[in-house]
Design a protein around this nucleic acid. Structure first.
Lengths: 229, 229
DNA sequence: TTTAAAACATGATATATGTCAGGTTTTGGT
DNA sequence: ACCAAAACCTGACATATATCATGTTTTAAA
């Protein structure tokens, strides 16, 4: 049982909200809803996409493999985010790979639905543009953090990011659980270094773990550290 | 004696080429041409811009100050590039500072000329969007390089970037001469480290210097190094 | 429930890079 | 042409981080 885009709440969070009724209907008729299991790829770096992916639930990592064989995670995308837009607009192969880090439900929207609307609906184009402007700002900030902060600072910032963007459950544990390896790849460090720093955070009682799950105990300390105090 | 946008060749390299005759006329009538001396700022991080800057000649660095007091250069912009677009579109304060690294000639185009056209001319919006999509890809690549390459690799890549983007003069010297400090800030390292690596490159005869000027002697070696061999 | 694989953890060590401190050279303004 | 300021350079040292090695715990599949 497929649901209709017209009644999809997710849409409020992305550029699709600027679409007209008819455009939305056309998207709805051509879209394909898929489930993706944790660990499975949505698409891979260098592929040519013939559409975009709208995330309905779950989280995906956007990463790029470097020559030394390490995967740098550039962004984590969740509910409401549209993936592959950049590639479709620039008519280029994808620059990043997308892999599910939790079970996901996504909608695949064929290229033409997007490009047609881009050509016809200036409001939509402007909305996409605003989103991309925002992404670009975020990317610039990441560049600065990567080059100017220590691994420890970045790791603290990463936990705050997880807390602020994906929230906590009733018991106070982070909703999104990343493996140490993924954490290392977000922060841009070796897995062992990530583990060591996480152990240190635990020892300091800034975070606590229970099995896979992580809880932030002292947010202020993490903020201070990430800002360099 | 001001020149008219309609007859400005620079325009071919940026999104202004998607403007109609009337729109271009309107831009031309409202624009202000300025000269900026090497070292002078165009605008500073956190400012609210009420327009964009179109670079006619010269080069500017786009940088951001980090908490530890270091300036990370995120991008070097030259002839044809439009600055401040992101900020005007997202209606946010600027995220980056722009400072001339050579004498420049720029045109200031008031916000309204841009936003009016964005609202009325879908082709223009789409063109701006394409440029921003490209910038975003570049930014993602920088993130990966920053986190996965060594300082030496990034320094090699920086020289190649200077050669490929700003070219060489008749004698084979790089057209754009950056101070060691600026080089360090592009690469994201300490000035002393930059100097040491540059000395090493000279010793290896991969580059040569004459006063301020730098010449690439062995491009292949720099390519190999930057790619990790 | 058992068992192999994956994830996690920690020590020892090497190395890249930052920092501090002291020089020399180059540059630009009068 | 001179002088102060800026840019450049080099050494010594501290430290953050990567790497390698090895062991333990957790997870998931048969």
């Amino acid at each position: 049982m497929e649901s209709r885009c017209e009644s999809c709440i997710i849409r409020q969070f992305n550029s699709l909200r600027a679409m007209s009724k008819e455009e939305l209907k056309q998207v709805s008729d051509s879209k394909i809803t898929k489930k993706v299991k944790k660990g499975d790829p949505l698409f891979n770096e260098g592929e040519k996409l013939n559409g975009v992916y709208c995330v309905r639930s779950g989280v995906t990592k956007l990463s790029k493999l470097s020559e030394n064989g390490k995967d740098q995670i550039v962004k984590l995308a969740t509910k409401g985010e549209v993936l592959g837009q950049r590639s479709v607009i620039a008519e280029e192969h994808t620059n990043l790979s997308a892999t599910a880090v939790s079970d996901m439900e996504i909608c695949f929207i064929p290229k033409t639905s997007i490009t047609d609307t881009l050509n016809k609906n200036p409001n939509f184009t402007l909305e996409v543009l605003r989103h991309m402007a925002h992404d670009l700002k975020e990317a610039d900030d990441v560049i600065v953090n990567m080059s100017q902060k220590t691994v420890k600072q970045r790791m603290a910032a990463a936990f705050l990011y997880l807390k602020n963007n994906f929230g906590e459950d009733e018991e106070g544990y982070l909703r999104l659980n990343l493996s140490r390896e993924d954490m290392a790849n977000v922060v841009g460090t070796a897995t062992e270094s990530a583990i060591r720093i996480i152990s240190e955070f635990k020892k300091n009682e800034w975070i606590a773990t229970k099995g896979k799950r992580v809880r932030v105990l002292n947010e202020q300390k993490l903020v201070d550290l990430s800002e360099g105090f």
